[in-house]
Amino acid sequence: MPYVSRSSDGAINGVFEQPQPGTAEEFLLDDDPAVIAFMSVSPEVSSVSARQFRLMLRRSGLLDQVKAWVAQQDGETQDAFEYSGTFVKDSPMMAAGFKAMGFTPQQIDEFFTAAASL
């Protein structure tokens, strides 16, 4: 039987196999509307590997444009782009780069979600 964390309005915040702080043991059917709603929400992607990020840039046709932007930035930004193992969505470099490319917050989320699948 799963352990469930719920918000004050009864929505499921998390489902766990073992007890966690703030969870209660509940019997939930697979077709329970609360379970379906919880499982249909994609988890937010906050970072991706450098490989995933660069592949997504290439597939989006943005790699050359981003490399040109990076070449105009300070040395630390250039080093971060070249040598980082992970790209974090909310980092200042990412915010500046996505702003320069004209991305909306929704487009940034979509980019990271797509990159995470690569």
Rank of each mutant, 00 (worst) to 15 (best):
T23V: 05
G10L: 03
D9W: 05
I12K: 01
T23W: 02
R58I: 02
Q52S: 08
M39P: 01
V41F: 00
V35R: 13
A24D: 08
R54E: 10
E26D: 10
D31L: 02
S47W: 00
V45C: 02
S7D: 04
V35T: 04
R54Q: 03
I12A: 02
A34E: 11
V41C: 12
M39F: 08
L55V: 00
S49N: 03
D31S: 05
G22T: 02
G10N: 02
Q18W: 05
A37D: 10
M56L: 02
F27E: 15
Q18S: 01
R58L: 14
R6N: 04
G22K: 06
S5V: 14
E26A: 15
L57W: 07
P19N: 05
P33M: 05
S47V: 03
E44Y: 04
Q52F: 04
Q18N: 15
R6P: 00
S47F: 08
L29R: 12
S46V: 06
G10H: 09
L28D: 00
D31E: 14
S46T: 08
A24L: 11
S8R: 11
F27Q: 04
S42G: 06
E17D: 14
L55A: 04
E25H: 06
A34K: 14
I12T: 10
S40W: 15
S5Q: 03
I36T: 13
A11Q: 07
L57T: 05
A50K: 13
A24W: 00
S8A: 15
A11D: 05
P19D: 07
A50Q: 13
A24P: 13
